[in-house]
Computed example of a mutant assay.
Amino acid sequence: MRYILLLFLLLWPVLAFAFPAKVIKISDGDTIIVLTEDKRQVRVRLFGVDTPEKRQARGRQAADYTKSIAALQTVDVQEMDVDRYGRLVGRVTLADGRVLNAELVANGWAWVYQDYCRTTECRAWEQLEQQARAKRVGIWQDKNPQAPWEWRREQREGGRPAEPKKEAAASYRGNTSSHVFHAPGCKHYDCKNCTESFASREAAIRAGYTPCGVCKP
């Protein structure tokens, strides 16, 4: 049974229903509208990735990037799911063979949406995200970009931050070269490449950093 489940996860992107369509509108960085061959308009939420919302910092730039590589292209849409808003959740392959979902992550305009991205391909996308972070491209140009799911939660709660963000003496420092993070007081805390700050140990680990072997944060 375990073997069958593993085989299904490996083949899921291939087995998912796919159809050709033309991209006619970019709603935001991770949502497009396509026109199918039978002239139906379908709203597609990109599978496994999450870009900043339009009213969020870098949101319009993320949408512009999606527009620059996908607008008016004929693409292949692999149907992965339907979300609670009735949108088709899809993996979109561009005319030149690149996967739009992966391109957004690789160029720094999207997070891998780990709560929903659990295929083997998602693990490769996580590596692309780490590379984009290290190169400081797209959203990673900012010191501490806010994940869109956190921004949306704040909006639901009336625009109030769910938890105050404190980066004073309690913050952790991450080495952008080694991807190791250090606690305050560690002899490596102010190293040359320790330019990434995290409000908590959990935030550093979620970002792909590992604890320092000296200070053991």
Rank of each mutant, 00 (worst) to 15 (best):
G174M: 00
L15I: 10
K192S: 11
K22C: 06
D38P: 00
H182S: 14
I32F: 06
L94I: 01
C212H: 10
K143T: 09
D81K: 04
K192N: 07
V214E: 12
G208Q: 04
R55V: 02
E53W: 06
R98T: 01
K22L: 07
L10F: 13
A162F: 08
H179W: 06
K187D: 08
G29A: 01
W12A: 15
V180C: 09
G213Y: 12
I32P: 07
G213M: 15
K187A: 06
D28E: 15
Y65P: 01
W151E: 03
T31K: 15
W140L: 08
A16K: 11
G185A: 15
Q41A: 13
E129S: 00
R2S: 10
Q78D: 05
T31G: 12
E157F: 12
T195I: 14
D83N: 15
N101E: 00
K135I: 10
C186A: 06
R58K: 12
E196S: 13
H182C: 08
A57C: 00
E157V: 01
Q131A: 14
W109H: 12
R123Y: 13
N144H: 06
L10M: 13
A71P: 00
A71L: 09
F17Y: 14
T74L: 10
A203N: 15
A102I: 03
S171G: 04
A203K: 12
K166V: 07
P145T: 08
C215Q: 13
G174C: 10
L35H: 10
F8Q: 08
R123Q: 14
V82A: 03
L100Y: 02
P13Q: 08
C212N: 13
R118V: 04
S68D: 07
A183P: 02
G29C: 07
Q41T: 14
R136W: 02
E126K: 15
G158E: 08
E202I: 03
V42G: 12
V105E: 03
G48E: 11
L104N: 05
V34C: 14
L6K: 08
L15V: 06
Q130L: 14
Y116D: 11
N175G: 00
N175L: 10
K165W: 14
N144E: 07
E121V: 01
I139H: 05
H182W: 07
Q131K: 09
S200D: 11
P20V: 14
N175I: 00
G59W: 04
